[in-house]
Nucleic acid binder design. Structure first.
Length: 485
RNA sequence: GGCGGGUUGGCGGAGAGGUUACGCAGCGGAUUGCAAAUCCGUGAAGACCGGUUCGAUUCCGGUACCCGCCUCCA
């Protein structure tokens, strides 16, 4: 069996991965707050941990891997959007408007991440709602956990708030390499009258009438962000599980707080054994932000006609622990490579899953701390074996049916020639004929004109002694060929 | 201010204490009416300074620069 090696943020070392239970390898990844479309940065952890998920399924068996990724649907930004709609005259209660907002956002999220070739999370291979828990469905567990933390003196209630007593957990700061005293020294921590210590963070906070709330021993209110993940991970994966993933920006404070809460609430468990953090995304060398005007969503790219697999490929080009830059040059590079692979494999059928054996060098690349860049190199090395290329690319989430169909459609409609679409074969024949005439007459103006028109329409022209071949590129525009018919 | 990460050839981007990364671009050639595509071949690197070593781009220390986090952003 392949040994998977992973860089564990907890120890800052690359370690052999040894699961607690090889029959049920458990991974938790912090999912999105569902207040709006997922931006491109949101896609990075999805693709990174999807790749890890695929590797784990390969090594341990699809039925022996559990992957939970939550939806945070309690959030001030969601509330604000719902309130905005209500004030704009939308019908329904605030709770209904909130629900409506989260429902549509989750549907968008699914559509966008599906397009990137990300598998849906699952409980031992079974895709279900529980694999994508929503915070609002685990309020009871959160309250119970908070209650326990108060009982064991790790938390205290004050003015409708419940706060975690950071000083009560001696290892606080270990994951992110910070000491509580250092943090207070240079820091901008929120000082509030209800806090014993400025570092203490909220487990529960009161809700106004304009905010969603649940009744609790501390009055009507809602949970703090950090407790959500702790409660859901505990409920679905137990007090000890294998891998916890998320973006590097979540390492502090979110993950630090998760550890503190969980360790104190469940002193017999040890929470996550391996912590994995993906580095952040940049756009053309700069941090993606609304103020810089380089902010965009996954949907924006898909709507521009950039296939999801191209986006995925670009992400796989960079190791997950390096900052990644989204650039037009990389997009083109990925687009071109994938177009070639489609061309080489479009006539083949994928090998059935039960007969497929992943290329060993590819698996080894991924097993070495998820070296996706090396995996792409291995894939490229399979180019002279189209069937292996197809099967292994698909194993990595590339060359999905939808894209293959898309490629085939543009290819076939042209080569077959039909009704309104340009007759590709006829054009090729005409060009070949003109060319042969021109070679005799030495007048190449007619053949060059047709060739230029085809190139302008995004068609690659290949002429040789054996004849003319026309290949539509990714920027092929049939409308531009109408005039030639 | 505190903590962490990075700096590889024109560009992107890996691995390895000594042996070709790879892709794109470039250059030379084959092919072509000219191209494109394809094929063959090829030059080019390791921020700076010191240390360890027979030998370092790879390990250690320092300097410079860049980036992230410290603000419920993945």
């Amino acid at each position: 069996m392949v040994t998977i090696r992973l860089t564990n943020s907890k120890t800052r070392k690359k370690e052999d991965f040894v699961p607690i239970d090889a029959k049920n390898v458990r991974m938790y990844v912090c999912g999105p707050t569902v207040y709006d479309r997922a931006h491109l940065g949101n896609a990075r952890p999805v693709i990174v941990f999807d790749t890890l998920y695929r590797l784990l399924r390969h090594v341990y068996g699809a039925d022996h891997v559990t992957y939970v990724r939550n939806f945070t649907d309690v959030d001030d930004k969601i509330n604000a959007e719902a309130l905005r709609r209500q004030k704009a005259g939308a019908p329904g209660t605030l709770e209904e408007l909130i629900h409506q907002r989260t429902e549509e956002t989750i549907a968008w999220y699914h559509a966008d991440m599906d397009a990137l070739g990300a598998l849906r999370p699952s409980i031992k291979g079974v895709v279900s709602e529980n694999a994508e828990p929503r915070a609002t469905e685990f309020i009871t567990q959160m309250i119970a956990m908070i209650d326990g933390l108060i009982a064991s003196d790790h938390a205290y209630a004050k003015d409708g708030h419940v706060l975690f007593r950071v000083r009560s957990y001696k290892d606080y700061g270990k994951l992110s390499g910070r000491s509580v005293d250092d943090m207070i020294a240079g820091a901008r921590v929120e000082v509030a009258p209800f806090k014993e210590d400025p570092m203490d963070f909220v487990l529960w906070k009161p809700s106004s009438d304009e905010e969603p709330g649940w009744s609790s021993p501390w009055g009507r209110g809602r949970p703090g962000w950090h407790i959500e993940c702790s409660a859901m991970a505990h409920e679905l994966l137990g007090q000890s599980f294998d891998i916890h993933g998320g973006g590097l920006d979540l390492q502090f404070p979110h993950h630090e707080n998760e550890i503190a809460q969980s360790a104190c609430a469940h002193p017999h468990g040890d929470f996550a054994h391996y912590w994995l953090h993906n580095e952040m995304l940049q756009v053309e060398g700069k941090k993606m932000s609304k103020s810089l005007g380089n902010f965009f969503t996954v949907r924006d790219l898909l709507d521009q006609g950039i296939p999801g697999e191209v986006i995925r490929f670009v992400f796989l080009m960079t190791h997950y622990r390096s900052p990644m830059d989204w650039t037009e040059a990389k997009r083109k590079d990925a687009d071109r490579t994938l177009a070639n692979w489609h061309l080489q494999t479009w006539e083949l059928d994928p090998t059935p899953a039960e007969e497929f054996v992943a290329d060993r060098s590819l698996v080894e690349a991924l097993a070495e701390d998820l070296n996706t860049h090396m995996a792409l190199v291995r894939l490229r090395a399979l180019q002279d074996q189209p069937q292996a290329l197809l099967d292994n690319a698909r194993w990595l989430g590339l060359l999905p049916d939808s894209e293959r169909q898309r490629f085939r459609n543009s290819w076939l409609s042209l080569s077959a020639g039909s009704g309104s679409s340009p007759d590709f074969a006829e054009l090729a024949q005409r060009l070949d004929h003109l060319r042969k005439q021109a070679i005799d007459s030495k007048d190449f103006s007619a053949v060059d004109a047709l060739k230029s028109a085809l190139i302008a329409a995004g068609v690659e022209v290949r002429m040789s002694k054996s004849g003319v071949e026309l290949v539509p590129g990714s920027d092929f525009d049939p409308a531009k060929l109408e005039a030639l018919q």
